[in-house]
Design a binder for these strands. Structure first.
Lengths: 152, 152
DNA sequence: CTACAACCTCTAGCCACTACAGCTTCAAGA
DNA sequence: TCTTGAAGCTGTAGTGGCTAGAGGTTGTAG
């Protein structure tokens, strides 16, 4: 009694690229791209030259996906993968990468928050239906009052 | 008594691209790029084919710069410029663009904040110097516990 | 055996610049 | 007036991280 085919497929040891894509949530084209830039090792091929992935590939691609979801640059992920392949792992380095990225994220948040405040100010004036002859949004962009005091 | 040359230069009615760059804080290459994509109109040229900008260009480029600093896409700025050129200004449309952008910024902030929380969690575990045999950063990326419950 | 989905490679496109190569022009000092 | 060197010019290619499409081949269910 061998399992039905549909079941077999989901348990299969070796899968084509579409199945890998489904399993990891990474698009087929993106998988090929990761291979091209050397993030994902080249898999075996079928007789007809189609990619066949094993368990190790699934794991590695999931790692990459998690890293990207957390906003790590592909270069950082490359390093993290290398570290994770290292037997005596250099946790320091991994931590440094994560800490640096965290700082970048915090910087980005800070910048976006001041942007948000500025935009909210502009948009509110405008939506308030003030009887301005000119539009507050356009005015804000044309206005130099913000930049004169820092140089140009 | 004509003004000294240095002074004259800063008051000049017509300026080369480098001076425009200095005045607006936009790089020379970026100015040429804006011209190429039709954001900034083609200026007059000197006999030797060099660009010569007038007051209107300075104003327009400052408008663009302010828009970019606020994170507006070049396409949005194109529309906003068109609106600002329109005599009876369509404030509604300008407001809609600003409001939409504000929403995008807020979305981005929200996404970055949850990223920040996740990264902080990961990085803290690791920096705590816990006697883990494996690195928490690497573990977090290799771990499936976060993604299993939403499908892959 | 046939139909058709899934796969293949290769190339170009996205955004908003940035950088370079290889040239010409401008302007200040001697 | 001549020389030097900064600043200008055009055109092309590269950045990151994919995404889309053309035009062909392979795998597999019925």
């Amino acid at each position: 009694m061998r399992p039905a085919k549909a079941l077999a497929k989901s348990l299969e040891r070796v899968v084509p690229i579409g199945t890998l894509a489904e399993r990891t949530g990474v698009k087929v084209e993106t998988i090929r791209y990761y291979e091209q830039v050397g993030l994902l090792p080249e898999p075996e091929r079928s007789e007809g030259n189609q990619r066949r992935y094993g368990r190790a590939h699934v794991e590695r691609l999931a790692f990459i996906k998690h890293g990207r979801d957390l906003g790590f640059a592909v270069e950082s992920i490359r390093t993290l993968l290398r570290l994770s392949d290292t037997p005596g792992m250099a946790c320091d380095e991994a931590h440094a990468i994560a800490a640096e990225h965290l700082e970048e994220v915090r910087d980005k948040i800070a910048r976006l928050r001041s942007l948000e405040a500025e935009l909210a100010r502009i948009a509110t004036v405008c939506s308030g239906g003030v009887a301005a002859s000119d539009c507050a949004v356009i005015e804000a962009l044309a206005d130099h009052s913000h930049c004169e005091h820092h140089g140009h």
